[in-house]
Simulated assay, not measured.
Amino acid sequence: MRTTTDARAKSPDAVKPSLSVSVMTHPDRMNAAERIRERLGPQVDVLLAVDPEPDGPRSALRSARLAFSQARESGATHHLVLQDDVEVPDGFVDSALRGVAVHPEAALSYFVEWGSRTAVLARWAALTGVGAVPVVNPYVPTVALCLPAALAGELGGFLESEAYQGEADDQAVLRFVRATGTRALVTVPNLVEHSDLPSIVGNTGHGARRSVSFPAEPSYRDDASVLDVPRLMPFFAWNTGAALVIDTANDVPATQRPALDVLAAWGTDEAALRESFAAAVGTAAAGARVFEAASREQLFSVWLIAVAMGRCSGGSGRTRSPCSAAGWTIPWRRQPCPHSLRGPCASSPTRTHCSTTPPP
């Protein structure tokens, strides 16, 4: 996978970053918010953003609006908003400050949920030693989100005047960063964990919503590298158990294809894949016990995503990834071109092959 470096990181003229913090909370969860304030209090100023309409419709938007607006009077260079169900580790403030030092103009999330699209990129980054990934979710993770203070205050106003009725706060934040041209990134590793408190906004049915990468002693190094988003991205859909390949340039259901079909289009035999999967499970220490937790087909889908990630990251031995923007030359009469995911090659619908050059 390719990476870029944030050119704004540690500019000679950069002001030493400082941090103010707001904790979004609800009257029913004040104890949790107070615990976070006590934990961070000696190092930074922490304000509580208590839902002003606690008996209103379930929504995080009201406290989010207040939390980001509190940046206007913080006096710090950056403002961090935490939700009250985060677990804050030792050394968090120092790590958070290192993050904003290398990405000073970004909307920087210190958490992404392990089943999301962005989590796929985070795993790639962890495997390759990259320090951050772009947000590719249809929302910006807001469990622990830091912005330049002026921009955070502007976001508070946006949530006040521009958010739709019933809109989720993280989706409204995505509209804001797009409107302002702000780059949304997630640190790898994540710097906070999501606890198991019951969801106030109705997400309890989603199951555990844990961090994709939260080590025993999380810290953020001085690393301005950012993973480039691949054109094609393998993705395990946690809500359906399907192994998919997503077109990140046009991420709508119509462009998603089963990973098995895409691997077949790249020349991988399904029977061989299933045989390899069976062999891998059969030699694992857990053995057949894994099938007590999930069906064989679901576990095969998880395994298939690992295979697809290997192919996309160059595990086939080729020097260029089949998931790059250039794609891989392949006939479309039997299999749609995998770099467009839409049937005939997008660059030339009348040709029997893609016009792109295959990897050497």
Results as ranks from 00 to 15, higher is better:
A49H: 04
N239E: 07
A308G: 05
L197I: 15
A144D: 01
W266S: 11
E73Y: 10
P359L: 14
G287E: 00
A278K: 04
A9N: 08
V229E: 00
A278Y: 01
Q43A: 12
D170R: 02
S11L: 15
D251L: 05
S301Q: 15
M233W: 03
H79F: 11
T128C: 02
V120W: 01
G317W: 08
T356E: 09
E87H: 15
S199A: 08
S348H: 06
P148Q: 08
L47S: 14
V212F: 07
P338M: 07
R175P: 01
R320M: 10
R8C: 11
G75V: 13
G41E: 04
P218F: 11
A306M: 05
D45E: 14
S95H: 06
C146K: 04
W303R: 10
T204P: 01
H206K: 13
N239L: 10
E87K: 11
V21H: 08
L185C: 06
A285W: 09
Q256V: 13
R274M: 11
G207D: 04
H78K: 12
R231V: 13
P57F: 10
L304M: 10
E270R: 15
I200M: 12
R183A: 11
L260R: 12
F214V: 07
P17F: 14
L191H: 05
L155D: 00
D247I: 07
G75K: 07
D90Q: 10
R62G: 02
A150W: 07
L147A: 07
R29Q: 05
P52S: 10
F92H: 04
R334C: 10
C323F: 04
T319L: 12
Q298A: 15
R209S: 06
N239D: 12
E73F: 11
S109T: 03
T356S: 14
T180Y: 09
N203A: 08
R333N: 09
P360N: 09
A149M: 07
Y139F: 13
A101D: 06
F235A: 03
F277T: 06
S109V: 03
E297G: 10
A271M: 06
P52N: 02
V130Y: 06
H26K: 08
T350G: 00
R72T: 14
